[in-house]
Design a protein around this nucleic acid. Sequence first.
DNA 1: CATGAATGAGTATTCATTCAT
DNA 2: TATGAATGAATACTCATTCAT
Lengths: 236, 236, 236, 236
Amino acid sequence: MDHPDTNVRRAVAQSRREEILDAATELFAEHGYTECLTQVVAEKLGIGKGTIYRHFPSKRDLFLAAADRVMVRLGTRIEESVSKLQDPIDQWCEAVRCFLQFFAEHPEYVELLIQERAQFKNRSRPSYFEHRERNIQRWREIFKSLISAGRIRDIAPDRITDVVGDLLYGTIFLNYFAVRESSPEVQAANILDVVLSGILSQSERSAREHEQTPGHSGIERSLQAEVPPAPILDPA
Amino acid sequence: MDHPDTNVRRAVAQSRREEILDAATELFAEHGYTECLTQVVAEKLGIGKGTIYRHFPSKRDLFLAAADRVMVRLGTRIEESVSKLQDPIDQWCEAVRCFLQFFAEHPEYVELLIQERAQFKNRSRPSYFEHRERNIQRWREIFKSLISAGRIRDIAPDRITDVVGDLLYGTIFLNYFAVRESSPEVQAANILDVVLSGILSQSERSAREHEQTPGHSGIERSLQAEVPPAPILDPA
Amino acid sequence: MDHPDTNVRRAVAQSRREEILDAATELFAEHGYTECLTQVVAEKLGIGKGTIYRHFPSKRDLFLAAADRVMVRLGTRIEESVSKLQDPIDQWCEAVRCFLQFFAEHPEYVELLIQERAQFKNRSRPSYFEHRERNIQRWREIFKSLISAGRIRDIAPDRITDVVGDLLYGTIFLNYFAVRESSPEVQAANILDVVLSGILSQSERSAREHEQTPGHSGIERSLQAEVPPAPILDPA
Amino acid sequence: MDHPDTNVRRAVAQSRREEILDAATELFAEHGYTECLTQVVAEKLGIGKGTIYRHFPSKRDLFLAAADRVMVRLGTRIEESVSKLQDPIDQWCEAVRCFLQFFAEHPEYVELLIQERAQFKNRSRPSYFEHRERNIQRWREIFKSLISAGRIRDIAPDRITDVVGDLLYGTIFLNYFAVRESSPEVQAANILDVVLSGILSQSERSAREHEQTPGHSGIERSLQAEVPPAPILDPA
DNA sequence: CATGAATGAGTATTCATTCAT
DNA sequence: TATGAATGAATACTCATTCAT
């Protein structure tokens, strides 16, 4: 076993490391990777630049450690909340809520993920995807079972996880950019409502069940005339 | 009218400007904003650095012009396709397809949007949001009419546009990062299927119609035991 | 003899050359050599940059031609005024007045001389000194004769020309830098008064005629106590 | 008081700062402001470019600090010499000698003052004038007292200081440009002789005492014929 | 262990000059 | 002859990283 002093030293180092990551996370998010100077990180902590380099071999490593920590924390957070529930659909809904809640509480984490992508384009495994890979398979299994159980429509499970993953990813980014007023709870409810039930009315859905390609309704659609002309540009 | 020479000169300048933007778009996407040197852009075009500066006052302006051009092109593209259809739901489905198609054909445009956000965090109106603002209101009106017409469920129209916008935004980014195998057509079909019809089975949907909060099914859910335990981390 | 057309062309070229020098003189003086862009000179004249280069092989040559023209004009000006007078002392006094008048009317010429010295340190013959060399010898002869004639004290003539030359040079520069209120006529009168008659009173002058080194009065100087303590720094 | 280390560090920094100014002074004078590269200054000192920027925020500041230092040193030098003398005329003569001596020993300082004027035309207070302002008033008081005491002719004191200031300024510049053979002591003697006693002979001075404008003698001046015709250009 | 002075590779931008039209 | 689009050499300044103390 290690000498007790060694353990103490290790704990102190770990704690210092976390402090550095805290400051770095905030400043990288505030100024962006390039504009965030190591000098400023050191000043915020009241330590010397050299000390940072005793804990992280380079600015790049410091940044990536901060970004990775975000995803680890997200994982822990979701795990804690989800494990309290039994029903898989409930669990999944809770995971969606947690995910949105987490980034709503820490908008700077979103900035960190953007910076990671932009500055380290060629990093083999961006932390977001690293994290995603680790978890997606398990959710696919869940959806597969739910389909077998007849609780979810017969859609390829990976299609579901893709759509939902994309939706959540897009949501936190757009939340961050165009600060939106709705709370994460309301957002989660909206998303779950749409994804669970779809947006079509019962009648429209029935009408469509005899067509092949969604979105190509016949010209005979009765209500068409009452609808205003479509805008010409963005679908969203 | 201007002297003919002036018109010729203007046309030549405009064409040169477009050539520069073409090269810049490609190289900014390939190397990222910071790593893309003006020297390299000039070399790719076989012109001098100074010539670039005759057309754009700074590297920053060159980049932002390239990013803005992406969104203008997207707008034109969607406009052209959508205007051929009559039914509003068809139009909207077509817009979704176009959007995905556009970025699938030009993955480098996605990189440009990321770089814009990361490098120019504080730009008042990132081009993506500039574009979104211009179009979202019209889609909201459409959804409102469709709801009145009973073709879409009674959901607040801005909730629909938010969810769909987030979903599309997330999709193009995740497509870009984690190169996915499915074609934009298939992706569009998946997305439209989920958003139009939801993922719940008919029976689950009926069962839920008596509950308030989606995702909080009762413990008495019969099929629960057949479903495997939920993974602990990511909901997607 | 040349073809008439050639003469016309030559005259036009000469006139264009002068226009360019006019604009260049003003702009070099206003912005300094380095900050004065050839583009701006061309714009002021409403011509293309290339045209300037048809008349002057380089920016350097353009500048030096402008600087040289200043001294040629000064020479002409003094010559005209001086030749109207007969008495050599009158002529010299007139030359002093002319010199000051000239630079008072054209403060930008002073700037040109400064710029010439600063930017072309190693030019073999700065135009001011070129000009000075051409004329100093003649003034020395004059002073020599005036001394022989008993009208000027027996001081080495080149000492006189040095002192007066330095004084005039210093005057126009300090006039330019620290814009002073007195007119060139008054300044000339002051300078001539001091240089012709000295500043000592008759009594002090007599007292000093028995001493060797000017400025080392004996401790026995009677009025000394009434004079305030000397400032510690600048003699001027 | 500060921690000892802080004091030591401060002293080291001050000494390094002076070394940089020494090298910069020499090189700015040798090559001129524009041609003097920061890289070369660093090489001369055997240090990195970055170190220069740790002590001076920009090349401009480095230069201006060097120029200011010149005038501070001049002030100190004159103060030391002048304070040893009692008689005000002696003090003033000593100041003149010191001034000339100072710039004779450091011709590069003259170049620095020229560069300052040429490159930073619009600097609110060029160091030479800053220095002049600080001292001129005290010399004016001295001359005023000397006039009251009857030791100096009744000339407005500021006219004296202007003439002398201009003369000295012109002298150091012309010394620098047209390297002259006479020592600063001899130059000072010449200047003081002229300024204290004037150049006119006793007889000419008497003859002029009945005229108004110096330099406009009548045509009846007897010796005129013996004097050669005046040169046409420069009065100096 | 902690520090911060020293380093120097790296790059956007300018502008005198050229030359095809 | 006149033009002005194109050129590319030239250079101050930054900041991540090192290492002597």
